[in-house]
Design a protein around this nucleic acid. Structure first.
Lengths: 137, 137
DNA sequence: ATCATTGTACGATAAAACTCGTACTACGAA
DNA sequence: TTCGTAGTACGAGTTTTATCGTACAATGAT
């Protein structure tokens, strides 16, 4: 199918850009654990668990460059930890909590809780109290 | 202290060889997850969970060389996942299930169950039924 | 049309991880 | 004392990973 626009013909590169995701049954423990062993990626996952709703990549204050962020989001997506889809120029991210729970029961919750614990242990006496695990697992 | 033996004096290199372990409160999520993301190491951990009692390194049929095995056991020990101590020329290994449970509740169990699930999914129709998680967590 | 915003693609680099073989140490047994 | 067993130390090779900067593409707003 060809779309004519202002005198020039264009292929349907107008179609929505899609991103590949592994199916629920294709999740690999190897990939998931590797994905979760990086602190930057755990920060992403923790924020996705804490804040309800989808969040754009730009909503994350990561301690790395933009291209490195892209890399980490891709690793999470290809491992099946997060779901990504375009909305305009932005990409909305969400946790695949249900899929993870189906394949690896208790894993995500355990990691999230452990991350909270370490975070509060590291930032000792910074704030009174915080982080109660808000994930909809 | 000097020990005299058959005419020659020797320093107390006779003292039991010790291996360094992180304390319970020193366990790092980063290190634990990294340790558990390698399939060879998960095989070790799974066997330690399945078989009761301590097991020597030589009791494991790993798909790597002897020196590589040493490497993997050390990674697990330094991450605090296993405890190792000498007994004669052998090293006895055991899971630090209680310490892991104290620091990262539910994590070890979730990983072990996930490993069992993947193993049975991979070796489909090999044996009728097996692997019910025998860890004393 | 032009422009700003979001994020990717593509190298490049540096560090970490997994692997091995060989030589070695420590211990127990013969 | 000699020997075999269990595991380590060390150096090296290969692969993966994390990181960055720059150039680019896609979209929505002006």
């Amino acid at each position: 199918m060809i779309w004519s626009q202002s005198g020039k013909t264009r292929e349907i590169d107008l179609q929505v850009r899609t991103l590949a995701h592994p199916g629920r049954s294709e999740l690999r423990l190897d990939a998931v654990l590797s994905a979760l062993s990086d602190p930057v990626r755990r920060q992403i996952v923790s924020q996705l668990a804490d804040v309800p709703g989808e969040q754009a990549c730009s909503a994350f204050q990561l301690p790395v460059s933009k291209s490195t962020s892209t890399h980490h989001f891709r690793v999470l997506r290809e491992a099946g930890v997060i779901e990504q889809h375009y909305r305009g120029t932005a990409i909305l991210n969400s946790l695949r909590a249900a899929d993870l729970e189906a394949q690896f029961p208790g894993l995500l919750r355990a990691v999230l809780q452990a991350a909270i614990k370490e975070a509060s242990a590291t930032a000792t006496a910074a704030r009174p109290q915080a982080g109660q695990l808000n994930a909809e697992v």
